[in-house]
Design a protein around this nucleic acid. Structure first.
Lengths: 189, 189
DNA sequence: CAATAGACTTGTCAATGTCAAGTTCTGTTT
DNA sequence: AAACAGAACTTGACATTGACAAGTCTATTG
């Protein structure tokens, strides 16, 4: 591996370059808005090089999902430390928007191998953090599970609707401001 | 047009046959799980026949979205007549599951021409019915808009999570039963 | 320095979306 | 009934893509 990023035979970190480019392209045009060959061109490598690292397109999407669930777990864990449910909801929304490329893949399991062990582990961790975050706020009420599910649903629903552009145009362009009263509507203030 | 469904030159109702097959295939394998050529084979016509009715694949997906928003508006309008918010939420969920092929397309505007006039009209109608349904239940509180958005978010979020298979496996296999307490969590009982 | 394994290339194939140019049917007009 | 117009479909072609097989280059290890 040469430190010069010139036209060496070895790219250096093709795996990361391709994955990042795929996430970026997904954010802009969805998972079918790019091709393995296009990513290869963009990275300056041959058309089959990406497949060496990911096997096939499904493999690349699987890697994106796994990394995405890990990043989501990190983001939620940080937000849950504050103790306010709305902060966790806001962090969820911010992840969906700022890391749209990951989010769009993660919740379309038909696109990737959702039984993949790395995906399953990261997804379980994210689910644990989310559940725990709601628990710490609610303080262990009897219907704890329902609360967590309701919280997840409302945050996920708002984020999905925002991303899909389905919300009325008069809602403005600040997703967090628009979401705050919606999230507050769930648990009283 | 011959009433015999034999191998006449004219299919009879190719447009509907292709659209229905596309919706069905989308429910099973997502919007990229089928091809125009595959639908043509399934209908027993030449590979370019579907394009005659829809222009291109995007056109077919646009037709699905338009019809889907119309069907959703119908379903919500019927449920809203009862006056119980949870019924509207349940109807939303049932639509997402029973008509998954439509639902999956509708909320991925990148797949179709979301500025299409028929789509825009049907979507506006569905949005109006939903908003009105929540309004009739809440009786015109001051934060009516927030309530409608929260209701839409929680119903849409639960439906999306259910469809994506992201929910824990111990939630059971009856989506409506699982959703009921979640929907109740929003507006008190 | 030889062996080895990983990283990447080259060549190829079937499938697909899309376009252009034809052919067949249907309904309407004369 | 004959001609016509337009809709419905076919046929043929091309560039792009995902996937596979086989080869080439390079770094590391012993």
């Amino acid at each position: 591996m040469r430190s010069i990023s010139g036209r060496s035979y070895h790219h250096g970190d093709l795996r990361r370059a391709v994955l990042n480019a795929a996430v970026e392209a997904t954010a802009e045009a969805g998972p079918s808005g790019w091709s393995l060959r296009g990513l290869a061109r963009r990275a300056g490598v041959s058309h089959a090089a990406p497949a060496h690292h990911f096997g096939d397109k499904t493999g690349l999407l699987t890697a994106i999902a796994a990394e995405g669930f890990g990043l989501l777990a990190d983001a939620l864990a940080e937000a849950a430390a504050g103790g306010d449910f709305a902060d966790v909801g806001t962090a969820y929304l911010r992840f969906a928007i700022d890391r749209r490329g990951y989010f769009e893949v993660m919740f379309q399991p038909g696109l990737y191998r959702d039984e993949d062990p790395e995906v399953a582990a990261a997804r379980a961790r994210a689910g644990g953090v989310l559940h725990e975050g709601v628990h710490s706020v609610r303080g262990g009420a009897q219907d704890d599970r329902v609360s967590a599910l309701a919280a997840w649903s409302i945050a996920h629903g708002f984020a999905s609707l925002w991303l899909s552009g389905a919300l009325a145009p008069d809602i403005g362009d600040d997703p967090e401001a628009a979401a705050r009263p919606v999230l507050r509507a769930l648990f009283g203030q």
